[in-house]
């Protein structure tokens, strides 16, 4: 299992914190109202642990935005919403949506969610790039829908991949929803990530 020191964890937390702050400010521009974002909590988890957390309390289907990135290190970034929360998000983005009629996402609504997910994931990847000096290129994100397992295994390339897993809460006006950001990386990528963080923050400047 991949381990980080307390200092490294703190640094990575701050990187994502800044990334999420950016995402919130972009989102608030889109929805023209304040977007509240909780402090993300970070964990390294295995596939089964992630499944357990996501499936917690429900066997409901999930929506996800999946984005591959490559560069200094590579991996898969995922933003996962329980379908219920994704509907809440769509309602928050489109206040005109008829409350009653929605029980699934239309094509265009899926696209809108794709963009929202893209903004959040880009903010995270962008923040890593900005703060650590790593360079990346991301692919066009895709929208996934289905069971937790279906979504997670789409993003996982090797059995040994670890999940850098982050849970966060959104609040848009009166609506509150939960989403999860997961970075799925293999061990060499995680090591490269840690090295970047160390180099950027933890080498003694003196």
């Amino acid at each position: 299992m991949f381990e980080l020191t307390a200092e490294e964890t703190d640094a990575i937390n701050e990187v994502f914190n800044i990334g999420m702050g950016r995402a919130a400010s972009s989102l608030s521009r889109l929805v023209r109202s304040e977007v509240g974002l909780s402090i993300p909590d970070l964990d390294f988890l295995s596939l089964s642990e992630v499944q357990e957390i996501l499936a917690e309390g429900s066997d409901l289907s999930m929506c996800a935005v999946h984005e591959r990135f490559s560069g200094t290190f590579g991996g898969n970034a995922l933003l996962v919403f329980p379908s219920v929360d994704s509907l809440e998000l769509v309602k928050a983005i489109f206040p005109d949506t008829d409350e009653n009629q929605l029980d699934s996402l239309s094509e265009l609504e899926q696209e809108a969610l794709l963009e929202v997910g893209n903004i959040i994931l880009n903010a995270c990847v962008g923040s890593i790039a900005n703060l650590t000096g790593a360079t990346f290129s991301t692919e066009i994100p895709i929208f996934l829908q289905g069971s937790v397992e279906h979504i997670l295994t789409r993003a996982q390339q090797a059995k040994t991949d670890e999940y850098l897993f982050m849970r966060m809460r959104f609040r848009i006006q009166v609506r509150s929803m939960i989403g999860y950001v997961a970075f799925v990386m293999d061990i060499p990528s995680l090591e490269a990530f840690r090295d970047c963080v160390r180099k950027a923050f933890l080498t003694d400047p003196a």
Binding site: E111, L114, V125, F136
Partner: peptide, 23 residues
Amino acid sequence: SQLSFCVEDALQVGLSSVLSQSI
């Protein structure tokens, strides 16, 4: 506009973006 930001992000940071008609 968002489109300008996205172009900037792509050229400077290497990020891909999508812009949806609904937004």
